[in-house]
Write a protein that binds this DNA or RNA. Structure first.
Lengths: 259, 259
DNA sequence: TAGTGGTCTAGACCACTTA
DNA sequence: AAGTGGTCTAGACCACTAG
């Protein structure tokens, strides 16, 4: 069965050329052309792709253009190159799969999404929060609890501890959805240089049932975050709890259908 | 506070040059140089980076080399470019965060990891499995249950439904860890063209407590997969259940410390 | 009109692999 | 020695944006 396919498919050979008048750049056309050939089975995982010079003369484009196309295939994990040997089609790797929080972004961009501030307080840091934020136990920090709703329905519960800077008053707008939305799409003022994120599976606790209007023991995601300023000091530590039935992450490995 | 920093930092100016004798390619040196300048606060989110021609003359490298460096910054989501306007530093976006299954890969590459086949059967497809695998209800398919252990400790429970091809006997080796390991690092024979993955939060069911030696109701991840062959037909559908206390995904957004 | 990024050329030299 | 990928040059032309 496998052999039969391997023998049959190459007969449906495509002899496409690069269209120099297309709006689509030559290097992109080449990327898609090679992807299609892989998808059709003309090149199988492990097979060697034509060398750069072969592709140059075959499609009448310069080495740099071929190079660029191949680099794209390589960082899409579709091919690997090794100097002196050649470029080879990779087989699909689960290890290369990545789940994007972009799916979460949609929640935040939704116009029906609102943020309800449940609580804002200045509190003394305890041992744990002090350690996370790099301040001494007992120092004043800001504690915020938010509830994110889509329409009437709560789906995210957010707790956050922030460095308290007496010189910088807590601005109302920072507490609203805008600050969270900015974090997701990058339009915020962004005092942050970097953030560490962490996703765990968890279950809804009794406290969370109240605000999320759901049942104790149901599955949930816990997305923890620490954000650092440009001096590498932590300024925000907190986490989102999201009902498991409201969120899932999806992705694809292997050849995508982008043509 | 913010203004003060902005005024103070640029005085610590770095005047590094590209070292043409370095093992590190010029374009990579430029990438890291710009990253460092961003990390130091010389360029803040929203700021415009020097134009390509400025970078060319500043560092005495050709336009293509500058271009390459900038493209890297762009697809690392550190900068955005728009034609006619310039290249700008982005603020960090949660939406660009990605969680990699590479962390899972470590489990599979571990030498202590073993696979115990709990069950292999030819079964008739029911309505649901038939739909997933694209066969009629009642047609014969393969059903496999595996348990993955690290040392003595079970951490993954895997159920899989496979297309049954009478012409291709079930090879013993395919049932062992090798086939799963190959899926993760790409060394397998890989009949698959692509796979769709899906992660949900869930809780351990009664059946799963038996094999995973844990308690009902504890949090867990459920990683579902469908793999397609080169003709785009589904050939495998299944899912992994992993104890929530054994697995977490981590990632970083913003400027990485790669220099 | 001047400046920006986006693409592309037609080579060159190097490092590595294989025979 | 021949073939491969990896890097880089010194320009060119284009499309877009802004004053």
């Amino acid at each position: 069965m496998k052999m039969e396919k391997k023998r049959r498919l190459p007969t449906t050979e495509v002899l496409m050329e690069i269209d120099r008048n297309s709006y689509e750049p030559a290097y992109m056309q080449l990327v898609n052309l090679i992807k299609q050939q892989i998808a059709m089975g003309m090149f199988r995982p492990g097979d060697q792709l034509p060398s750069e010079s072969q592709l140059c003369s075959r499609y009448h484009i310069s080495p740099m253009t071929v190079r660029r196309a191949i680099n794209i295939l390589i960082d899409q994990k579709i091919a690997t190159a090794s100097q002196g040997k050649g470029t080879f089609v990779t087989s699909i790797k689960l290890g290369s799969a990545a789940f994007h929080l972009k799916e979460l972004q949609d929640f935040f961009m939704d116009k029906n999404t609102t943020v309800k501030i449940l609580e804002v307080r200045i509190v003394p840091a305890n041992k744990r929060t002090g350690k996370k934020l790099g301040v001494k136990s007992g120092e004043a920090i800001i504690y915020i609890r938010r509830l994110l709703l889509q329409g009437e329905e709560p789906f995210f519960y957010h707790k956050e501890y922030l460095i308290y800077d007496p010189a910088r008053p807590i601005v109302e707008s920072e507490l609203e959805v805008t600050s969270l939305r900015g974090l997701f799409n990058g339009t915020g003022s962004s005092e942050f240089k970097k953030g560490d994120l962490n996703i765990e599976a968890t279950v809804i606790t009794r406290e969370e049932t109240q605000v999320l209007k759901t049942q104790e023991g149901l599955p949930a995601f816990r997305i923890e975050h620490i954000f650092y300023d440009f001096a590498e000091n932590p300024v925000s530590w907190g986490w989102f709890i999201c009902r498991g039935d409201k969120l899932r992450f999806t992705t694809t490995v292997g050849i995508q259908e982008t043509f």
